[in-house]
Nucleic acid binder design. Sequence first.
DNA 1: AATGAATGAGTTTTCATTCAT
DNA 2: GATGAATGAAAACTCATTCAT
Lengths: 200, 200, 200, 200
Amino acid sequence: MRGETIEQIFHSAVEVFAHSGFERAKIDDVARHAGVAKGTIYYHFKGKEELFVALMRDGMEKMTEQIHRQMGREPDPLRRLRALLQAQVEYLYEHGTFAKLLLSESWGSVERQQEFRAKIRELVELIEEVLIQGAEEGSFRPQMSHHDTAVAMFGAISVSVLQDLFSPERTGTREERVAGLVANLEKLFVDGVVVSKGKT
Amino acid sequence: MRGETIEQIFHSAVEVFAHSGFERAKIDDVARHAGVAKGTIYYHFKGKEELFVALMRDGMEKMTEQIHRQMGREPDPLRRLRALLQAQVEYLYEHGTFAKLLLSESWGSVERQQEFRAKIRELVELIEEVLIQGAEEGSFRPQMSHHDTAVAMFGAISVSVLQDLFSPERTGTREERVAGLVANLEKLFVDGVVVSKGKT
Amino acid sequence: MRGETIEQIFHSAVEVFAHSGFERAKIDDVARHAGVAKGTIYYHFKGKEELFVALMRDGMEKMTEQIHRQMGREPDPLRRLRALLQAQVEYLYEHGTFAKLLLSESWGSVERQQEFRAKIRELVELIEEVLIQGAEEGSFRPQMSHHDTAVAMFGAISVSVLQDLFSPERTGTREERVAGLVANLEKLFVDGVVVSKGKT
Amino acid sequence: MRGETIEQIFHSAVEVFAHSGFERAKIDDVARHAGVAKGTIYYHFKGKEELFVALMRDGMEKMTEQIHRQMGREPDPLRRLRALLQAQVEYLYEHGTFAKLLLSESWGSVERQQEFRAKIRELVELIEEVLIQGAEEGSFRPQMSHHDTAVAMFGAISVSVLQDLFSPERTGTREERVAGLVANLEKLFVDGVVVSKGKT
DNA sequence: AATGAATGAGTTTTCATTCAT
DNA sequence: GATGAATGAAAACTCATTCAT
């Protein structure tokens, strides 16, 4: 298992990186925050970049893992979509710092950014699979491009969470906020905004 | 009208900031790219921050303006939504560099970032109005929170555009790509993913 | 012509590098010594390495140049050899700091060291030419390898100078010391150590 | 006898120090190269400096020893000179790494460097003795300064060896190379470059 | 208006050395 | 005897900003 110190550094690094973004973040701060000497960080990580990438990798892994766990083996596509939605929103809301980094540090040509986008693609594919499964099964409308739709849904989810996290005027407990966001997204994704004549 | 030199600097700054992000971007690079001396930039702008903010303000302004122009006075909510969608996607796709900055430089507590989020909120409100109007008029389903739904839609739009712009394997002309994205988003927003018995 | 500041930095850099060797030398010291800010050095030179290489290049150039000048157009090989000897010893003695760097920083596989060796080869070739010329003309004994002999002579010259410079107990004016070294080297190179029967 | 581990460290240290020079060499590299932990080196040696000095002392000792052995008790000055030459070239060529360190780490005011110069002086004195003996015996020309001549010869020897070792284009077996260098140096030292009428 | 040399505070990174196990 | 994680002082290097011309 990963050592105590590394865990410590990791934890502090998330805080600091999220608070300041990759460039603004100072290794000095990570060290101070973690209660270790600066050299210790360089003993465990090659440099700022490596630490950050390790961090994000870890975050994405945990996220994917938790989502998988929460979705379980639900066979019904609609319920599966709901579970996925709930899981993603919950995770991102819980790890707002990570969510912020994901959305702000993924667009560019630096190698690390390409890796992040690849990770995002994994998340998108999770959604995509649910969409495809639903379409095959007949309960979901076949999409022009399941992938593009999945991307749009991921965008909706992540930006919703971030916007909410950065809204100073938001009220209610975290659970309530999450529930609200999930319900809203579900409504949008499932039924769209237009009143369908066939439904009440 | 703004002088030749300032225009030059502005133009180069967009390029450089978009390529590297605010922190990574170097004034030196902007100067070289613009073909002026570094001092010249400081003669016209107070500093890096001011240059960047001026830039973003300009971009947001043009965006809002163009969107307003494109939407015209279309009274039908559904058509109005379509027009809005088309306009936003088109603008962001066209100004990918700006889209990238918008999504990556808006999350944080630095003052400038709060200003960017405020601008995003303006865009979101544009969507919100359409939703509200549609709901009042009866063609749109009343949302739990029109604002949250609008945010979600904005997220879907912007992330879709960015993901597409950074996809190396994308094919087709820009017009085709934009049309595809718009069609897909429209489908999702209007009808959702679930097959409704009442519709064909 | 090269700017005042650069000249200043150059001058200080020779001092500092020679005193401490490449690795031990601190850019901070060069800056302080030159009376400029650290940043100024980095404004003019890419880094420590570039400064050092520029320095050595400059030193070698001046050395070659001065030697050429001093040797003039003397056609007689023996006199030419003497002139060369005198010029090399004089220059190295005068620029002991440079001599030290040349001998201590030229052996290794770092690129810069290869360049230094190439420069040394130029000096060696100067000697070689004299030897070949003398051999063709008949006054010098044909050597097994003029190049190897030239290398040996260069080694003798440079180490003699360094050893003398670092001898705490040396006496006499610089001119006397140089004259002594030159005379001694000349004796060795010209006649060898063995008593030849054909000479008194 | 010295323990296995110490021997290992010693051996690796020679490699690493020779490859990078004293300053550039990292204890980490020595440890990795030796297959021991960094702490182990500090268990056996007080520090980097001590390790290096111990190393050089060892090298110088072995060198002096081997040279003495090879020279034997040859009474004839000329043959004695030849033997000395052969022994020095051979040792330095064989221990090129050591030769490099000797020439590059001996010029400076750090204590260790003074010690190295003292050791060099020992080598020089070996040569000096031969010269003096030859002069007293009558077969060598009396020198202005036997010491200076000896220094020059040492310089010629060591630089010749180094230049050869670092020549990428050198050909032939090591024995051949050594033999060539020795022959050439002998020719130079014994007869000089000038054709003397009294010899064939 | 424009320039570009100079600055120095701020960061990242390195590495010999220590020490608890 | 041996280990290797942890340290922190010491350097190298960056870059937004200033200012004399």
